[in-house]
């Protein structure tokens, strides 16, 4: 056997390489043939805009109130829409590099902003004037400890103000002005005045909910452990993810800004998303599948009454629909 191999190793090598190439090409051609048609989702009061995972093309899809799904002419890894303005975080070039595209009501791209990393969160303020996003910056290697950071940027379409990072902001941590190189910001949500915002500040292994002002470029910590806030349409509550237990999984919690009372949403354990308010009573969020499949979007009553309902499977990035 060994002697035979030594004599024929060149032939064996060439044949093996040809087989590997044939096998690889066959697999890729075969998988790219399967085109999934739009499926169906649950019927809702509002409908939903989201990113489809079923056919791998990351197409933006619209779920009608009836549960009918139709594809939009947009491919994004993260999408959000409000008042006719849509933000689409998408692949831009080799690297791979990514960009934020701002799309107006008629579907034209009115602005693109280069991103420093992989799309994670996207938001549009209720007026459609302030778009914001968060990306993961990972450098060149997944094996470097501490080699990850997040970056949050925004554009005010009315004033033209644009920042690709909140690092220049003055931040008060527990009332004290601080500036550390490892400050990370993620998950921004902007209020109806187009200047007040909530977001997450992270440093070392801590995270805080912060409230700030986009015009004065100041922010302060509000409470610890609250991440990826989402302001309700009536501006009275903030939904965010929070660890259940010290190092436990995240769950979604709704904070009443007036009373300071937190309400956990049942069945949301394992969520890792910035929730979207479909209306003042309903939150939608994506949740990873435990079996390794694609994520699913759920809807949940914002007052914590009742279990979540599956809106659509093989889907992420929930957003209220285009009206």
């Amino acid at each position: 056997m060994t002697a035979w191999f030594t004599r024929h190793r060149i032939v064996v090598g060439v044949v093996a390489m040809v087989l590997v190439l044939l096998g690889g090409v066959t697999y890729v051609v075969w998988t790219s043939q399967s085109q999934a048609a739009p499926g169906r989702g649950a019927s809702t009061a509002t409908g939903l805009l989201y990113v489809d995972h079923a056919n791998g093309k990351d197409q933006v899809a619209r779920l009608d109130p009836t549960g009918e799904v139709s594809f939009e002419d947009l491919r994004c890894q993260r999408v959000y829409t409000a008042a006719g303005t849509t933000i689409c975080l998408r692949l831009a070039g080799p690297g791979p590099s990514y960009e934020a595209a701002v799309v107006n009501a008629s579907g034209a791209v009115v602005r693109t902003v280069g991103l420093a990393g992989v799309p994670s969160r996207a938001r549009v303020s209720a007026s459609g004037q302030v778009v914001s996003w968060t990306v993961f910056v990972v450098g060149d290697s997944y094996s470097t400890p501490g080699g990850f950071s997040t970056r949050t940027g925004f554009v005010n379409l009315r004033t033209g103000a644009e920042m690709d990072s909140l690092e220049p902001f003055t931040v008060l941590v527990d009332g004290k002005a601080e500036k550390r190189a490892d400050f990370n910001f993620w998950g921004m949500t902007v209020a109806t005045d187009d200047r007040t915002f909530y977001a997450t500040l992270g440093s070392a292994d801590k995270a805080w909910l912060i409230r700030g002002d986009l015009v004065t470029r100041k922010a302060e910590t509000v409470r610890p452990g609250a991440e990826c806030p989402s302001l309700s349409p009536d501006q009275t509550r903030v939904a965010y993810k929070k660890r259940a237990g010290r190092l436990g999984q995240w769950e979604l919690v709704v904070l009443d800004l007036k009373t300071g009372v937190e309400t956990a949403l049942p069945g949301s354990l394992g969520v890792d998303d910035q929730a979207a308010w479909l209306d003042n009573a309903t939150l939608a969020y994506g949740k990873p599948a435990s079996n390794g499949g694609s994520p699913t979007i759920y809807a949940s009553a914002a007052d914590g009454s009742g279990q979540p309902q599956v809106l659509v499977s093989n889907a992420s990035s929930p957003s209220p629909p285009v009206p």
Binding site: H53, Q77, S120, F136, S316
Partner: peptide
């Protein structure tokens, strides 16, 4: 891996 974790798996 980054887009796989963050987008495909939602992690």
């Amino acid at each position: 891996l980054p887009v796989y974790l963050v987008f495909t798996l939602n992690m």
